[in-house]
Structures are given as structure tokens and as C-alpha cells.
């Protein structure tokens, strides 16, 4: 008569150990997130012990180098906002337009060629975009403006904003393409059978159906623009400038972070610590955008009962 083996204890211990090792590895990602949060938070708290919290968010003067240093980050936030706005006004229409072409008009062969080409745009390192913005686009804008009698800075918000927009095109187009393709074909047919033209079908039925996904893509794009560093470090200004004129130089949160950390100041000086306060603001905003963006995509998936996109 055959009996079952009794439980092999050694093997079980081994299996459990492997499982715990895997859990340990998985924990690293959590440690990283909290590592980022706490390392930024603690230094930011150090900063706010020295400098006013309220003035940081409402003050308009940023003068870290002076004896009576002031840290009013409003012009920095404004610059970030404006450059992001320029970037999105380039990236959103072009990215969405490209996505619509690829998902609705392109043939299969066109698609297989065009999609990787757009992905090349996504694979270009940002330092390369920065060089392009600083050395080609910014002088071009200055020349064009001069020829029509306008004055533009070599560090104009427009130059870095436009190039940043181009960088974000693939972010918008790739996610939008996915959600537009995922809209059930039956809706298109339903609309066309009512005597709608193709563009009416796209504008009135397909796009509204894909809207949560498109909003999600846009939020992701904004988050990318806010956190983008190299383009603005290389092509935008250092001077906090509260202005609506996009031909002037402006600075951003990321530029100020880099600027205050690549010097030789003492680590616990307010000038250095201000980088962490700015970093904290950036962290909170981008994290919020990401969480909202994920919610939107979930909403879209639930709408069409899709398991994965």
C-alpha cells in the first residue's frame, strides 16, 4: 500500500524563505517612495523652521544669495505654470490629432511605421531636447521676433515651452491612441449608420467615449511638464520673473532646485534647503495628478468593462 509522503519540513522552510525574500524585494519600492517623501519632507521642514511657510507660497521676492535672503516662490510657480501651459498647448492638440489619425484613419501598414517613429520622439533624452531648445529654437525665436519688431530673450519661456511640448506629444498620443482604439467599434458603426460623417462620429461619439482616458493622458502630460528639468535648466532662465510675457525669461521649480544644489553652499543653509521645499511642492502636485489620472483610466476601463489596456 502506498502512502502519501509526510510533509517535508525542509522543503517548506526553503519555500517560505524564498517567499519572504520576494516580499522583501517588493518592499523596496515602498521604501523608495517613502524615502523620497521623508527625505524631502524632513529637509523641507528644516527650511520652514528658518523661513516663513506662508511667505514661501505667497511672496514674490526670491533672493537666496543675499544676507537678508527672501524665499517667495510665487514667481517660480508662475514660471512653471506658464511654461507648462505653453507645452500643453503644443502637445495636447498635436498629440491628440496624431492619436486620432493613427487610430481612426491610418491603415495597418501606416500604423506599424508611424507608431515606432513617434516612440523615437519619446526615447530622446531630455538633455538632448534641452540642447536643441537652447541652441536652435531659442535663437530662432529671437530672430523671428526681432524681424517683426518684438524683443525676445534667449532664455524665453516660449522656447523651452514649445520644445517641452514636443517632448510630451508622444505621452499624449500613445495613451490617447490606446483608449481611442479601445472604444468599441459598434459605437462607430451605430453613428455612421445614422448618416453621420466620419469626423462627426469621431468628434461626437468616439472622443467623448474616450474622454476619461484622454484626460488621464493630459494629466500625465502636465505632470511630465511640471517635473521636466533638463529642457528648462538649459533653455529657460534663472531669474524668477512674475510676468505673462512668454518672450521673457522665466524660471521653474526644477531649475531652482538644480541651481541651489549644484553650488558649494553649506547643506543646511536656507538657500540649499529651499530646493527641498520646492521639491516637496513638486512631489505633492505630481503625485496628486498621477492619482487622479489613474482614477480616470479606471473609470474608462469600468465603462467598457476592460480588464487591461
Amino acid at each position: 500500500m502506498q502512502t502519501f509522503e509526510t510533509k517535508n519540513r525542509n522543503r517548506h522552510i526553503q519555500e517560505d524563505m524564498i517567499k519572504y525574500a520576494l516580499i522583501l524585494a517588493a518592499t523596496i519600492s515602498i521604501l523608495t517612495t517613502f524615502g523620497i517623501l521623508f527625505s524631502i519632507l524632513f529637509e523641507a521642514i528644516e527650511f520652514f523652521k528658518l523661513k516663513s511657510f506662508v511667505y514661501f507660497f505667497t511672496g514674490t521676492e526670491w533672493s537666496p544669495g543675499t544676507v537678508d535672503s527672501k524665499f517667495g516662490a510665487l514667481p517660480i510657480f508662475a514660471g512653471t505654470f506658464i511654461i507648462t501651459l505653453i507645452a500643453m498647448s503644443v502637445a495636447l492638440p498635436i498629440g491628440l490629432g496624431s492619436a486620432i489619425f493613427m487610430s481612426e484613419y491610418a491603415t495597418k501598414t501606416q500604423r506599424t511605421i508611424l507608431k515606432p517613429l513617434l516612440e523615437v520622439l519619446a526615447g530622446i533624452p531630455t538633455v538632448v531636447y534641452g540642447f536643441f531648445a537652447a541652441i536652435t529654437v531659442a535663437p530662432f525665436i529671437v530672430n523671428v521676433c526681432n524681424s517683426i519688431g518684438l524683443e525676445a530673450s534667449f532664455n524665453s519661456a516660449l522656447a523651452s515651452g514649445v520644445v517641452m511640448g514636443i517632448m510630451i506629444i508622444p505621452v499624449i498620443s500613445s495613451l490617447s491612441d490606446d483608449v481611442i482604439t479601445a472604444v468599441p467599434d459598434s459605437l462607430r458603426k451605430g453613428s455612421l449608420a445614422l448618416g453621420m460623417t466620419k469626423s462627426e462620429t469621431i468628434k461626437d461619439v468616439v472622443i467623448p467615449s474616450a474622454m476619461p482616458g484622454i484626460i488621464s493622458a493630459a494629466l500625465l502630460g502636465i505632470s511630465k511638464a511640471l517635473g521636466e528639468t533638463m529642457i528648462v535648466v538649459m533653455a529657460a532662465g534663472l531669474r524668477p520673473n512674475l510676468s505673462w510675457n512668454i518672450l521673457e525669461d522665466m524660471t521653474t521649480v526644477t531649475v531652482r532646485i538644480v541651481d541651489s544644489l549644484v553650488g558649494d553652499q553649506a547643506f543646511n543653509s536656507p538657500a540649499t534647503l529651499s530646493a527641498f521645499a520646492l521639491g516637496l511642492a513638486l512631489f505633492v502636485v505630481t503625485l496628486t495628478l498621477n492619482i487622479v489620472s489613474v482614477r480616470m483610466i479606471q473609470k474608462f476601463k469600468e465603462k467598457y468593462k476592460m480588464s487591461s489596456l
Partner: peptide, 12 residues
């Protein structure tokens, strides 16, 4: 006009 196999009302 045309009516399809699967009901396909627009998500409106």
C-alpha cells in the same frame, strides 16, 4: 437606417 445585433447606444 440600421439596427445592430448588440445594442450600441452611445455613452450619452
Amino acid at each position: 437606417g440600421m439596427v445592430f445585433q448588440q445594442p450600441n447606444p452611445f455613452p450619452k
